[in-house]
Design a protein around this nucleic acid. Structure first.
Lengths: 337, 337
DNA sequence: ATTAGCACTCATTGCTAAAGAGTGCTAACA
DNA sequence: TGTTAGCACTCTTTAGCAATGAGTGCTAAT
């Protein structure tokens, strides 16, 4: 694989990315000034095809990149080029001042990714079991109803109504919350153990029933949260891509996106050492997206909460630009601000 | 319009609903035993066409119902037939025991409608502006952050973080909430007026800034709530219908469904006297759904909160069955339980 | 090693003919 | 007078076929 072959492969990929049409030797010779004739390019292409990096839909059509062609491109040819200034400014300004809590950050990120890349964007938020409970409070709302308020470390808030005995006082509630706050807050829910729980019960012998209800509500909420960790937008714009001009494909892909569980599994298989990972075509496990590519990018919200950004698009996607964008957004999320 | 014409129109509509193909005279004569020959049916069809109830896509094709054909069918021919027993049991059992709060009811209804009709289902929950604020509370979370908790009449809870000056005490917060609770709670947000607000400000001269923040947050949340009143599921299964075998249409309809504002407007135009309303094809205002039909059905959750169920499907939909289903679900929602 | 030239391949486009579904009209019938 | 059989006519759909054109692969010349 010499330099010229690399250049030609790059040209084929770039052209195919922008046109979605098989690329011919003449096109490359004219559009990309490599100063070689179509005939020479044809010879090189023949080699590239033998190596498995490009393929023809049928004899005597142009060439298009194969999965391994894209893979080679991503691994060895593509360089991370700087993001367009306008895009960078848009991203930076979108984050400025608008981020009060984690959910805001997620919302802004998703919106940006979907708008700029025009591909569906996924965001995996850190699971609740990794979150600590920051504090709880309880408010008496009616005679037999109290509102339990959970605030997590990353300032997510959850509300649950709890039944309380008639005549229960606001001060009784306070007693309960005080104990729970002192014993359990600041700890990850996965670290709660029997001893800890027993201590809480011990201190609140009289309120056993309501305490059980409260603890159950907390666990329930924290786990429910776990299920809702995946966010998704930008599905429709994907339909503009020529690869989705067939309704069958559209249906299959939309059905695929409807299954949040699968999406979560895809993202959750977490990155090892690298910041990002690219899965091209058949490298994906799921049949429905065997001709899509996925880019995953780690982020650490304010240096603390770890999650994953993801994009699913056609194989023919702008890998370099997309990765740069994810890098930038990941940076923005990291900033302590 | 004599009885026979009615029968023929009905046959045409039923056949077209199930096949999506223009219906010929021979088909009707054979499949529906009206005991008349194709030739006679042709004569009648000719009349029906003149009256505007059916139309031909081109000369010498079969007939298909026109919008006014469907309209005539819905108004004068169709009878509400009893729901399939299995369906009825499914609905009733789906509601049993699972409904703790309004949101549960909505979720179950949507899921049922989408699953049974296979059309996209919409639910409009009662709007916040019709809701009264039941109470607010504020909790100090950090030195400069407080959590504002809004509880509405129907026990929806909203949380907003508010910036507070450093050193602000829990008791200061209490003062504010007390005033707001006494002046504003129990009133619909649409009834807030200048005098009322002025009174609140008067009592809390010293806390002007934070009060403004709190009031703004309340209004913002109540209005945001208004925007989120619409629920939607079952989009994908719609793609199975032959009328959506064209990607352009799919895109336009999906984009349409993405705009919750428009959907809300459609549903919010509320029903006058009747329990339900049917909009057929061009009767809809929005171009994108000029060849869809909408069925809207009023409901009163536990006799109290009024909202609307809606279904959007192809004009070629099972009007009678769908209406029966919506009736049943509306009944289930109404039950005090 | 590169390139010009040329025959060859195969999808796409346009055209025409045949098939088929269904109508509308006319004339016969009860 | 209403109903029906028969038949010509219309218009879409389908298949087949030739022309077009983009692009290749090979060969021979540079």
């Amino acid at each position: 694989m010499d330099e010229r072959k690399r250049k030609i492969l790059e040209a084929i990929i770039l052209d195919y990315i922008s046109t979605a049409e098989p690329v011919g030797s003449r096109t490359i010779s004219k559009k990309y000034d490599l100063n070689i004739s179509p005939a020479t390019i044809r010879n090189e292409m023949s080699d590239l095809e033998e190596m498995g990096y490009i393929e023809q839909p049928y004899t005597s059509a142009g060439r298009m990149p194969s999965d391994s062609g894209y893979r080679y491109y991503v691994d060895y040819i593509m360089k991370k080029n700087k993001l367009d200034d306008a895009v960078e400014r848009l991203v930076v300004s979108s984050f400025r001042g608008k981020i009060n809590k984690f959910d805001d950050a997620i919302a802004v990120s998703m919106e940006l990714i979907a708008r700029i890349t025009r591909y569906p964007s996924l965001v995996l938020a850190p699971g609740a079991e990794k979150l600590s409970l920051s504090m709880i409070r309880m408010l008496k709302v009616e005679d037999t109803k109290a509102l339990l308020i959970l605030i997590t470390e990353n300032r997510q808030v959850e509300n649950v109504f709890i039944d309380i005995p008639s005549g229960f006082l606001e001060s009784d509630l306070e007693l309960i919350t005080n104990v729970i706050n002192s014993k359990l807050s600041g700890k990850k829910i996965s670290d709660w153990n029997k001893t800890l729980i027993a201590e809480v019960y011990h201190e609140l012998l009289k309120q056993k029933e309501i305490l059980t209800a409260v603890l159950e509500a907390i666990e329930d909420r924290m786990h429910k949260n776990k299920e809702h960790r995946i966010h998704l937008t930008g599905l429709i714009q994907m339909l503009n891509e020529p690869e989705f001009h067939d309704v069958k494909k559209v249906r299959s892909i939309l059905a695929f996106f409807d299954d949040k569980k699968i999406l979560e599994n895809i993202l959750v298989k977490s990155l090892q050492d690298d910041d990002y990972e690219v899965y091209i075509g058949k490298e994906n496990e799921q049949d429905e997206i065997k001709d899509c590519s996925i880019i995953k990018r780690k982020y650490n919200f304010r240096g603390d909460l770890e999650g994953i950004l993801g994009i699913i698009g056609p194989k023919r996607m702008d890998y370099s630009g997309t990765i740069s964008l994810l890098d930038l957004i990941s940076d923005m999320l990291e900033q302590k601000k």
